[in-house]
Design a binder for these strands. Structure first.
Length: 296
DNA sequence: TGGCAGGGGTTGA
DNA sequence: TCAACCCCTGCC
């Protein structure tokens, strides 16, 4: 296990807590001692922030791998400079979560995690990925299991996956794993694609629609223009940017986000998302009660 | 304490 | 466009 320090080149103030807790990754948790424990690819790691923009890592991951994962050489300041200047909502979010950076995570782990994220909250997604590791990963040490590969998950039965508490997501994950394992969808090839092509290719996977494809583009491939249009963003765009508009089509919102937030819109999206989750606990008008869909 | 609503979405009709 | 999918959490 090595211990070394890495420093962000183009960001004066980084916030590791926000970076690892904002919902882009589900493989990190904070220990009672206050350091982060998680994974840099298939290397277990501990991370602790020191000063304003340095991290101390304890891990077997080579330094170059860790720098790539934490994106220490990315031009964060110039991305922020390209954000819309007059957007007061984004400015408020920046004051709260501007220390966030985006990680560059392994594509398969990211794909699986976000297939599991449908209709789930962050702590629950964490619990599900942990169960997948424990059930299908390789045991490195006590309580340390690698993330299971596509070929391992492709061999698992849907029932086995369901037993991990995946619910209806088990079928999606089972099919998606087989699509990757068989080469029907090649994740390696997606690395070489531009944003539009990668987004389209990812949506060939079962359980991956436009939102999850954008998450994978943003958190695994570094396509910063990918703007995951989740329910929080839909509500925010309607309330903040189109308060007078009664009905707003999804296409129109995507168009607006692409133009307004620009080529680093995905970075802005994640900052807005985290700010909304933490600060706008009940920000929206309560929906009118709807009759339960459950059959008695 | 128990019941119910709702959750970072996708699919298929 | 909308119901269905599974299960957990938070609220009343």
């Amino acid at each position: 296990m090595h211990e070394y320090c890495i420093e962000y080149r183009s960001k004066a103030i980084v916030d590791l807590d926000i970076t690892l807790d904002c919902g882009q990754s589900f493989s990190w948790g904070k220990t009672p001692e206050g350091h982060w424990q998680g994974w840099i690819g298939h290397y277990p790691a501990q991370a602790l922030q020191v000063g304003e923009n340095r991290l101390i890592l304890k891990t077997k991951a080579p330094e170059a791998v860790a720098r790539e994962y934490f994106q220490t050489d990315e031009s964060w300041e110039s991305m922020i400079a390209a954000f819309p200047r007059k957007d007061k909502t984004l400015q408020a979010a920046m004051r709260f979560a501007g220390g966030m950076v985006l990680l560059r995570q392994p594509i398969w782990e990211t794909t699986v995690s976000f297939i599991l994220s449908a209709q789930k909250q962050i702590p629950h997604i964490r619990a599900l990925t942990l169960r997948l590791r424990e059930r299908f990963g390789k045991r490195l040490a006590k309580d340390l299991y690698t993330f299971p590969s596509a070929s391992v998950l492709a061999k698992a039965s849907e029932e086995d996956l369901r037993a991990c508490g995946l619910g209806f997501r088990a079928k999606s994950l089972s099919i998606a794993a087989r699509q990757v394992q068989s080469g029907e969808v090649s994740l390696d090839r997606i690395y070489a694609m531009d944003y539009e092509a990668a987004r389209a290719e990812l949506q060939k996977l079962r359980g991956v629609g436009p939102k999850i494809a954008d998450c994978i583009c943003l958190f695994a491939l570094g396509h910063y223009q990918a703007f995951p249009m989740d329910t929080w963003m839909i509500r925010m765009i309607k309330e903040v940017y189109f308060p007078q508009t009664q009905t707003l089509a999804r296409d129109r919102m995507e168009q607006f986000a692409a133009i307004h937030f620009g080529k680093y819109g995905g970075y802005a999206q994640q900052i807005l998302f985290h700010w909304m989750r933490k600060k706008w606990k009940r920000p929206f008008k309560k929906k009118a009660p709807v009759p339960s869909r459950r059959v008695p």
